[in-house]
Design a protein around this nucleic acid. Structure first.
Length: 418
DNA sequence: CGTCCACAGGAATGACGGGCGG
DNA sequence: CCGCCCGTCATTCCTGTGGACG
C-alpha cells in the first residue's frame, strides 16, 4: 500500500515458496508432537496398558512410577496409552477420568490441584483459597462423581524439589478418604535419584509398579527419525547419511530422541536457508553447532549481572595470561570490574558458588587442585570462545565498555606454574 | 614429618520480593 | 488490599584439606 518496491516482497515470497521444497510438515519434528506410532516402545506401551486395563472393569489400577532420562519417550508413551484408554473407556461406558499434569509447568501445588479440579469440572477461584481447602473440594467433588481417576504427574521431581512432597503424600493416601471413587497415580521422573529423596511411604505407594525407559541406541533413533521424516519432509530431500548422523550424535550423548529430532529439524532449516535441495551431513553438523551456539548464547545472556561479571573477569584474564586461572585472581579482577561500575562486589564465598554454577552449565571448566605450600584452589578455564562472549554480552547496556576493558590489577604475577 | 597456604564448601542466618490467605 | 509466609540470594562464620616447603 505504501507503494514500496514490489521487488522486496516478491523476494520474500519467492524464497518462502522455494523453501517449501524441504519441509512438508515441520510440526512433526517438534518434541511435543505425539506420533501415531512409537517405535521401540512397544514393550512399555503394552506393560502400561496391562497395568491400567483393570480400570475398564471398574477396578483401581496400581500406581505406576515411570523413570528414565529425557527424550526416552516417557511422556509420549504415557499420553499415547491414556488417549487409547479414554477411547476404550467411552466404548465400554466405564467411568474413567484421565488427567495429565506437568508439575514443572504447573508450578505450584495450588495450580496442580486446580487443574485436577478443572478435569472433573469443579470450578475453583484462581486465588483466594488455601491449598487445603481446594484439596478438600477436589476430594468431595471426586467422591460424588463415582469414578476412577488416573492422575499423571509428569516431572514429579520438580514438585518434590520445589515444595516438600506433601501433595504427593496426600495424593497417595487419598483413597483412604474416598468411598465411591478411586484414584490411580502415574508419576514420571527424569531423575532416578528421586527415589532416594522421596518419603519412603510415598515411594512404596507410588511404585506399586515400575516402568523403566532405557535410552535409545543409534539404530533405534534412526528408525524413529526415518518414521517422522516421512511425514515431516518432502520425498527425497533427506539423505541417508544425514539421518544416520543425527541418530549417531544423539545416541552418543544420552540416547535422547528429543535431541535427535531437534538436530533433524534444525538441519532442515539450515538446508532451507541455503536453498539446498537435499539435507546433507554437513547441514546436520552445522545444525549441531547452531544448537550449541544458541544454547550458550542464551545461557550467557540470561545470567545475572554478577555472574556475567565473573565470566568477564575470566575472559579478561585469559586474554592476557593465556589459559588457566584461579579463584583468587578472578576475584581480584571481579572486584575491580565492580568498582568500575560502582557496584558493591559479592563475597568470595558467593563468587565461589557462582563459579560452580557456571561450571555446571558447561560454560567453564573448574577443577580443584592443590599447589602445596601455595594453597589449595580451583583452576578455571573458560569454555566459550571470545566471539560468543561478545555476542551474548553486547546487548547488556549495564556492562558498558567493560567488554574491551583492560584490568589494572595484573601487577603481581603470582601463579604461573601448574 | 609437621606446617601452613589459599582456598573449598557446609551450616546458619539475614535481606528481600512475590504470592497466598484472610 | 494488607500482612504473613516462603523461597531465593547473599553474607558470615566455620571446618577441612593436598601437598610443597622448611
Amino acid at each position: 500500500m505504501e507503494g514500496a518496491e514490489p521487488g522486496i516482497l516478491d523476494e520474500v515470497f519467492d524464497n518462502f515458496f522455494n523453501s517449501v521444497t524441504i519441509f512438508k510438515d515441520r510440526e512433526v519434528l517438534r518434541h511435543d508432537y505425539l506420533p501415531e506410532r512409537l517405535p521401540h516402545r512397544e514393550e512399555q506401551i503394552k506393560k502400561l496398558g496391562m497395568i491400567l486395563a483393570p480400570v475398564l472393569k471398574g477396578a483401581r489400577p496400581s500406581n505406576v512410577f515411570i523413570y528414565g532420562k529425557t527424550g526416552t519417550g516417557k511422556t509420549a508413551v504415557t499420553k499415547y496409552v491414556l488417549n487409547r484408554l479414554k477411547i476404550k473407556a467411552l466404548e465400554f461406558n466405564a467411568p474413567v477420568d484421565v488427567c495429565y499434569i506437568n508439575c514443572r509447568l504447573a508450578g505450584t501445588e495450588y495450580r496442580i490441584i486446580t487443574s485436577l479440579c478443572r478435569e472433573i469440572s469443579i470450578s475453583v477461584p484462581f486465588t483466594g483459597l488455601s491449598v487445603g481447602e481446594v484439596f478438600d473440594r477436589f476430594k468431595t467433588g471426586l467422591d460424588k462423581r463415582k469414578t476412577i481417576m488416573i492422575i499423571t504427574l509428569d516431572e514429579v521431581d520438580a514438585l518434590v524439589k520445589n515444595r516438600s512432597d506433601m501433595l504427593l503424600y496426600e495424593l497417595t493416601r487419598i483413597n483412604e478418604f474416598l468411598t465411591r471413587s478411586k484414584v490411580s497415580l502415574i508419576g514420571i521422573s527424569n531423575d532416578l535419584r528421586l527415589k532416594e529423596f522421596l518419603d519412603p511411604r510415598v515411594l512404596s505407594s507410588l511404585s506399586e509398579e515400575e516402568l523403566v525407559f532405557r535410552p535409545y541406541d543409534a539404530t533405534e533413533l534412526r528408525n524413529i527419525l526415518t518414521e517422522r521424516a516421512k511425514i515431516a519432509f518432502h520425498e527425497g530431500v533427506l539423505s541417508e547419511g544425514a539421518i544416520s548422523l543425527c541418530a549417531a550424535l544423539a545416541a552418543a550423548e544420552h540416547g535422547d530422541a528429543r535431541r535427535a529430532l531437534d538436530l533433524l529439524r534444525v538441519a532442515g532449516e539450515v538446508a532451507e536457508r541455503k536453498r539446498a535441495k537435499v539435507i546433507t551431513e554437513d547441514h546436520v553438523r552445522e545444525a549441531e553447532k547452531l544448537i550449541e551456539h544458541n544454547r550458550v548464547v542464551e545461557a550467557l545472556s540470561n545470567l545475572t549481572l554478577h555472574s556475567k561479571l565473573v565470566v568477564l573477569s575470566i575472559f579478561h584474564i585469559m586474554r592476557k595470561n593465556g589459559c588457566r586461572t584461579v579463584t583468587g585472581e578472578i576475584y581480584d579482577v571481579y572486584t575491580e570490574l565492580c568498582g568500575e561500575l560502582g557496584i558493591t562486589p559479592l563475597t568470595q564465598r558467593r563468587v565461589s558458588t557462582l563459579i560452580n554454577e557456571l561450571d555446571a552449565m558447561g560454560l567453564l571448566n573448574a577443577q580443584v587442585v592443590s599447589m602445596g605450600r601455595y594453597g589449595r584452589t580451583k583452576k578455571i578455564r573458560l569454555e566459550v570462545p571470545r566471539t560468543i562472549i561478545k555476542e551474548a554480552f553486547s546487548g547488556d547496556s549495564r556492562l558498558g565498555s567493560l567488554i574491551d576493558y583492560e584490568p589494572k590489577c595484573f601487577t603481581k604475577n603470582t601463579s604461573n606454574r601448574d
